[in-house]
Computed example of a mutant assay.
Amino acid sequence: MTQLTGAPAGAAPQAARAPSRPRVRPAVIGLPAFGLVITVAAWWLVTSGLNLLPPAALPPPQAVWASMTRTSDVLLPALLRTAWMTLAGFLLSAVAGVLIGMALAASRRVERMFAPLLVAVNAVPKIAFGPLLVVAVGWGQKPILTMVFLLCFFPVVLSTATGLTTTPADLAELARALNASWWQSFRKVRLPAALPQIFVGLKVAMPLAAIGAVIGEFYSDLPGLGYQILQYNGIGEFSTAWAAIVLVALMSILLYSALSLIERLALPWVKATTSAR
């Protein structure tokens, strides 16, 4: 039989070939590692090489590493407690923020009534609530979760409300042309179109959750990383306090990267429909 295409006999069609497995590009790991090396080298140069800062202000990286390994039996359990508080508070603020954002997007009257109040709560420095939280909710996990919630919920509310109220006009017109109900339009059009914007708010809120957990631990009796920072700083162990700060930073990077991975897996169409950088 004569072949209709110019491909050689026995060659498989391009469309029939099995898709190749996604591979991790070396730059995804290599570039962050290279940036980390540059940062540590600059840190060493400022502290040990040129002696621009005293050890009490910023200990050299080798001293921080030595303190981290020496007190790992204290800092690692503290890291787990802070990570758990960060995740729990982030999930609470994410759920509440999405629900509040949906309510603001559903009714202009609700938005006009409560949007100024939300802006006012977000504008107040959260550290001012610290001593009051201990009186209001007591010791333990409650002040930490409350502080994380106060820091995180506003970006999620704003991104959710913005995403749901900026549905592309062609998609909204298509839903109306198909006589879709309100629920069908919300579930099939508005919510999927708003998900990229919602994830923007979630990624802004994730580092804020770590900040809120540390601030909350300043006013709590739970020995997380924030608690350890205060304790070691109070007794003059500045390198160990900085080791706890470094662990907070590393925890935030890992949580943010995990959230970005979830976004890529949950929204595969975003990369295909947007311009590449």
Rank of each mutant, 00 (worst) to 15 (best):
L4T: 13
G6Q: 08
G6K: 12
A9Y: 05
A9L: 14
A11W: 05
A11T: 15
A16D: 11
R17M: 09
A18M: 11
R21G: 03
R21K: 09
P26S: 04
A27P: 01
V28A: 10
I29Y: 07
G30R: 12
A33E: 01
L36S: 05
I38E: 04
W43P: 09
W43N: 07
W44M: 07
L50I: 11
L50E: 02
L52G: 06
P54D: 09
A56K: 05
L58D: 05
P59I: 06
W65E: 05
S67P: 00
T71K: 09
L75C: 10
R81H: 06
L87E: 15
L87A: 15
G89W: 13
F90S: 09
A94R: 10
V95E: 14
A96I: 07
A96W: 01
V98P: 07
A105P: 07
A106D: 05
R109F: 12
R109V: 13
F114A: 03
P116V: 08
L118K: 06
L118N: 03
V124D: 05
G130Y: 01
G130V: 00
P131V: 10
P131K: 08
W139D: 04
P143S: 06
I144F: 06
T146S: 08
L150A: 14
F153C: 11
V156N: 03
L164C: 08
P168L: 14
D170C: 12
R176G: 03
A177W: 10
A177M: 15
L178F: 15
S181H: 03
R187W: 11
K188C: 00
R190D: 08
A193M: 11
A194P: 01
P196R: 09
I198E: 04
F199I: 15
V200W: 02
V204W: 05
P207H: 00
A210G: 10
I211C: 12
I215Y: 02
G216I: 04
S220H: 07
D221L: 08
P223F: 01
G226W: 05
G226C: 00
Q228P: 01
L230I: 14
Q231G: 06
Q231A: 04
Y232F: 15
E237G: 03
F238A: 06
F238W: 09
S239Q: 12
T240L: 03
A241C: 07
A241V: 03
A243N: 00
V246C: 14
L247I: 08
A249Q: 04
L254Q: 10
L254W: 15
A258N: 01
L259W: 13
L259C: 13
E263D: 14
S275C: 01
